[in-house]
């Protein structure tokens, strides 16, 4: 088991992507929250999942990441090893959940559970913290950092495990514009380092700034999946047009 982890963590050569979502349906309490969604996400592009409240954006990310089990349908990665698949993704939540310990320890904790040997953890964690500009706060209790700093710790934690795919679920929704820009810069840097980015956002500006392609959901259904430029210029569906015009908020 432990050996398998090590192998998975140290042999990232086989590609994880593309990710295929097939007829994905999720129901809770008799309500269908995600309805027969099928799509394929490839390497390289930053995918932004958009849609009004209740469209199923967060749900889609959680199902892809394996936090939830679909009622029907499946999530398929190019790689067929469940353990390796999980280890090569990271997820940043709207509200970062940091442990009651130092900033550095939050990152090394993630590394420990990703099977990184004790000797390598500290250096890798420091490197990730430097990348998000928090190297000088490594010794601080993580819970005492500001909201924006906490989200950067969450990003450092994600980055440290060197994922192939990073999911971000409304990662800047609670942050001020300046903190948001910092986060976007880090996401951009991760993208340039070759990490596949999949994020949800309410913020149209952010979507325009970051998206290479748009997945537009409405009431649990996939409505459009197109290159970002084309989507913003000529949305095909009435729902997308309404959404972009600010007429469709639910």
């Amino acid at each position: 088991m432990f050996l398998a982890r090590l192998v998975a963590a140290t042999a990232p050569d086989e590609p994880l992507l593309p990710l295929s979502v097939e007829n994905l349906t999720f129901e809770a309490g008799g309500t269908r929250l995600l309805d027969n969604v099928s799509l394929t996400l490839g390497q390289g592009m930053r995918t932004v999942v958009m849609g009004p409240n209740g469209a199923g954006k967060s749900l889609l990310l959680r199902l892809c990441h394996g936090l939830l089990r679909p009622t029907r349908g499946r999530v398929r990665w190019a790689l067929d090893d469940g353990e390796a698949v999980r280890r090569r993704q990271a997820f940043v939540f709207q509200r970062p959940v940091l442990l009651r310990r130092s900033t550095l320890a939050n990152v090394t904790f993630a590394l420990a559970h990703a099977g990184v040997t004790l000797r390598c953890r500290r250096d890798r964690a420091m490197e990730a913290l430097e990348r998000v500009g928090l190297g000088h706060l490594a010794g601080r209790p993580a819970r005492l950092l500001s909201g924006g700093e906490q989200q950067r710790v969450a990003l450092a934690r994600a980055w440290a495990i060197r994922p192939d795919v990073l999911f971000l679920d409304e990662a800047t929704a609670n942050l001020d514009p300046s903190a948001t820009r910092t986060i976007e810069g880090i996401v951009q840097a991760m993208h340039e380092a070759g990490v596949k980015i999949v994020l949800t956002t309410h913020d149209l500006g952010q979507a325009r700034r970051l998206a290479d392609e748009i997945v537009f959901l409405h009431k649990g259904r996939l409505v459009e999946h197109r290159p970002a430029a084309a989507f913003f210029e000529r949305p095909r569906s009435e729902q997308a047009r309404a959404f972009l015009d600010g007429r469709l908020m639910e």
Binding site: L67, F91, H113
Partner: peptide, 10 residues
């Protein structure tokens, strides 16, 4: 409070 985050970290 921690469930999803811990699950995500494996």
């Amino acid at each position: 409070e921690y469930r999803e985050q811990l699950a995500s970290l494996g």
